[in-house]
């Protein structure tokens, strides 16, 4: 069952091609990883799917509905939610307020007590229960990242786009984050994840897609992708050559 279908997607910024004729699908219930060197177009792709950017060409379908060109709040209401690479929590609101706001707006007319219950559930789920009344700006980086995930989940998405949620975390925190991603999928939410921490991608993902200068150069199981010579050349090659 395909949940998200991207066809021939193209986006350029002032002549610079960020995404070029990209097509792929996300299957329902899977964890799909997206990797690629810096500037490969990963965040641009997330911005296109979530509606922050409008594609120049190509179409995006979510289920049967065409979503390319829709505004972000519409796409969110249809069931796609996201986190941001540079954390964008609401700094002067408490943790609970951050989550409850998302819960009350993503679905039409959700009763207040149900929103509260959802918020409490997510606080526990993401390990934020102890800091729930703190202002978001006072949280540590790892908690801010967890809050972003909790806020995204509060919109009750069918698909969540996670943009480098493990960047800047220490090894223990990374392990926690990996457990969290698995748990999200087990809740029934499909995961599409951009990550630089390769170990996490290899452990978590059912499938992996590799972007290079806006084009897809490989797709498959983590093992297949790892042994793909093209990938080793542009991605791993570059990475390991540096070390």
């Amino acid at each position: 069952m395909e949940l998200l279908k991207v066809e021939n997607l193209t986006k350029s910024f002032g002549g610079l091609l960020a995404i070029h004729k990209l097509s792929f699908i996300v299957k329902e219930g899977e964890i799909l990883g997206l990797i690629g060197p810096n500037g490969a177009g990963k965040t641009t792709l997330f911005n296109l799917i979530s509606g922050a950017l409008k594609p120049d060409k190509g179409r995006i379908f979510f289920g049967d509905a065409k979503i390319s060109g829709l505004r972000p709040h519409k796409i969110c209401k249809m069931g796609i939610s996201r986190t941001f690479q540079d954390v964008k929590v609401f700094p002067n609101m408490t943790v609970v307020e951050n989550i409850a706001l998302a819960a009350t707006f993503a679905r039409e007319r959700i009763p207040t007590n149900e929103a509260q219950r959802l918020a409490t559930d997510l606080l526990r789920f993401c390990g934020l229960i102890e800091v729930k009344n703190m202002l978001a700006r006072d949280l540590s980086l790892v908690n801010q990242k967890r809050l972003e995930v909790a806020r995204a989940l509060a919109t009750q998405p069918k698909l969540i786009l996670l943009d480098e949620m493990m960047a800047g975390l220490n090894p223990t925190e990374t392990l926690d984050a990996m457990r969290l991603v698995k748990a999200i999928r087990d809740r029934g939410c499909t995961v599409f994840i951009v990550e630089h921490v390769l170990r996490a991608i290899m452990n978590l993902c059912d499938r992996v897609m590799v972007l290079h200068y806006g084009e897809k150069i490989a797709e498959g199981t983590p093992e297949e992708v790892c042994s793909n010579p093209k990938v080793i050349e542009v991605y791993l090659g570059e990475k390991y050559a540096q070390n």
């Binding site: 709040h73 964008k88 609401f90 707006f105 679905r107």
Partner: peptide, 20 residues
């Protein structure tokens, strides 16, 4: 609360379903 979230981070508030 939604208006406040616009002041805090407009992009994020759009992405949690608020028609900013």
């Amino acid at each position: 609360m939604a208006l406040k979230s616009i002041g805090e981070n407009e992009m994020a508030s759009e992405h949690i379903g608020i028609d900013t």
